[in-house]
């Protein structure tokens, strides 16, 4: 049986060589669809938008000069106070949201890292917020946060707090959207850090115990350093998403009141699709992109993210 299979498969060495040499192309054939999609749907529009950013494109205004305007749009970006305000708001929103959800997630991971009745079910329930469509998250929180009818003010009223104005007052709007973001994405940080905690070896904790470290010392000297790679990855992913937050803020405050929650993605959407100032909008987009890139690269460098990823690979 095997003999006949061998004979029928026998080919001239030359043909076999040509065929096996073709294997060199196999990875590129496999990569081709991805590269095509990435370039056609991803890179090309990006380059196109770079081009638009040097023009005065504004389809709604036939009188405007639609052609090449050089660096004019970029010069305007630099002096656009509204934009830099949005950048600050985005920075504040991101920092508050990422830091609070990190702290909360670490505490929760430690809390749930023991076997008590019902913890498995509770962990599953806690995951749900990150699965709810962000638009729905915005809607339900906006409904709960309504000053007169909302259930939040009712609940706080029971314990004698409030009523709060939540998203509709200048003072509490940013805190409100941060709260919603923290509510939705802490579960994401939590499961990553929880998984990291579960995967830590026991022996360092045992030797810390024998060495006489207190719970607090163990936490800072053993748990945190060993969790660092996982924390770095969780923070990076959270950072990238927090900077782009749009949906919940769009639903809850639309950037208001008085622009206190006017993050960059809301501002960009307004410039591009309310005023159809596409040339200027594109320039804004590119500046935004470079800012984000800078933030991420700084974080990647400070945290040694690539080293962590490569170490994972080496194993």
């Amino acid at each position: 049986m095997a003999e006949s299979a061998i004979r029928s498969a026998t080919v001239h060495a030359g043909a076999a060589k040509a065929q096996r040499a073709g294997e060199k192309w196999a990875p590129w054939i496999l990569l081709a669809p991805t590269l095509v999609i990435m370039n056609v749907v991803g890179v090309y529009p990006l380059l196109h938008s770079l081009y638009i950013s040097f023009t005065g494109a504004k389809p709604t205004d036939p009188n405007a000069h639609q052609g090449w305007v050089g660096l004019k749009n970029y010069a305007e970006v630099v002096s656009d106070g509204q934009f830099w305000h949005a950048v600050l708001v985005t920075g504040g929103f991101t920092a508050l949201s990422v830091v609070s959800s990190l702290v909360l997630a670490v505490l929760m991971a430690i809390l749930f890292n023991r076997p008590l009745p019902g913890f498995v079910l509770m962990r599953s329930l806690i995951l749900i917020p990150m699965l709810v469509t962000p638009i729905a998250v915005g809607l339900i929180w906006r409904i709960m946060m309504m000053p007169e009818l909302g259930v939040l003010n009712y609940l706080f009223g029971i314990v004698g707090l409030g009523p709060f104005q939540w998203g509709s007052s200048r003072g509490s709007a940013l805190a409100s959207v941060v709260l919603v973001d923290v509510w939705q994405w802490t579960p994401f940080m939590f499961i990553i850090i929880f998984a990291g905690l579960k995967s830590l070896p026991r022996s360092p904790f045992e030797s810390a115990q024998i060495d006489g470290a207190s719970g607090w010392q163990t936490f800072w000297q053993v748990t945190v350093p060993m969790l660092k790679p996982v924390i770095v990855i969780a923070v990076l992913l959270r950072l990238i998403d927090a900077i782009r937050t749009y949906d919940t803020i769009y639903i809850i405050t639309r950037g208001g009141p008085d622009f206190v929650t006017d993050v960059v993605s809301i501002y960009l959407q307004r410039v591009n699709f309310r005023f159809f100032d596409l040339g200027y909008g594109s320039a804004l987009s590119w500046v935004t992109m470079l800012l984000i890139l800078a933030v991420v690269l700084i974080f990647v460098n400070l945290s040694g993210f690539l080293r962590i990823v490569n170490e994972k690979e080496a194993r």
Binding site: A5, I6, A9, A13, A16, K17, Q19, R20, A21
Partner: peptide
């Protein structure tokens, strides 16, 4: 005795 230098593994028996 047969040249299998570039043959696929499955044909080498």
């Amino acid at each position: 005795g047969r040249d299998v230098t570039y043959e696929e593994p499955r044909h080498r028996d």
